[in-house]
Design a protein around this nucleic acid. Sequence first.
DNA 1: AAGACTGTCAACCGCGTTGCT
DNA 2: GAGCAACGCGGTTGACAGTCT
Length: 307
Amino acid sequence: MMRKPNNGSTTTTTSASTKLRKGLWSPEEDEKLISYMLTNGQGCWSDVARNAGLQRCGKSCRLRWINYLRPDLKRGAISPQEEDLILHLHSLLGNRWSQIAARLPGRTDNEIKNFWNSTIKKRLKNLSSTSSPNASDSSTPNPNKDSKAVDGFMSMEEQQRVLPMYVDLSSTSSNSSLQSMVLNPTGTVFGATTGYFATQVGIDGHCFYGENEIFGNMDNGEELYIPPLETIGENPKAGNTFDSNIITAPKNNINNNPFSITNNDIKSENVTAGGNFWLGEELKVGEWDLEDLMKDVSSFPFIDFQS
DNA sequence: AAGACTGTCAACCGCGTTGCT
DNA sequence: GAGCAACGCGGTTGACAGTCT
């Protein structure tokens, strides 16, 4: 969406009393910045601003370059593959947009953040409101509630059929990996060539595991492997919430999936149920081994969907 | 047709981190 | 170690365009 620049009407002052523009960038400013960057490369951003003849602070120049002018930026909508990757990386990294963006060539943290905050959250909201009219009871799944598949999500019946194990992630903090062992709003379960743990968030961030090893199919028809429940922990009855010991480690490593949550990732089992994680309430999920997670993520290939 | 509403996204703000003096 | 500046990041804002009523 293109917007008109504000003709420099908005300015701010610095201690040196030089007027700095704020607001949208004009094509002329863009041209100056591009020209300077291509000629001189990236240096001190305040120097860039000064030397390029821009009445902008360095910070603003940096942002404009990184988010919009960089030649390697990919334009256009987020592809389904990218979306899956974003979802999964978010499940591991939380709101670490820059780290997520680093694994999506041509995408910026700002772009991914916006995508998440608009598209993904909207889907979750829709799912929540459609599947759980009684918001006050959102922490408890209702196996008897009839429902239909919405926007590609599984219907409640389908969820109940394949997702008897219910994990309430509803109040995980925004940074918790647990928060989002998450949700794939496309309705497909995230996976790849080898078996990933497959989860789907139902209502208000509720997370489900399927009891069958084969959970579903990818868009490309590829079957997904779901670890047997015994590898995850005790198998509660459908609809049960639980307060601890559920997200215990798989007794054996699920697979070779670099993302799978293993017992090394969860050092405490103090997991509580209830609430809604979107409200930012804290969930005691124990001490996550962030280093291990980061190792996992760093081993993930940088995928170029352009090819 | 017009005003209200909604979604998207560029840009700003504030804060933590890092590196230099 | 303190002070400072620059950088980088995530949260938030606000303008604009599209859609709805």
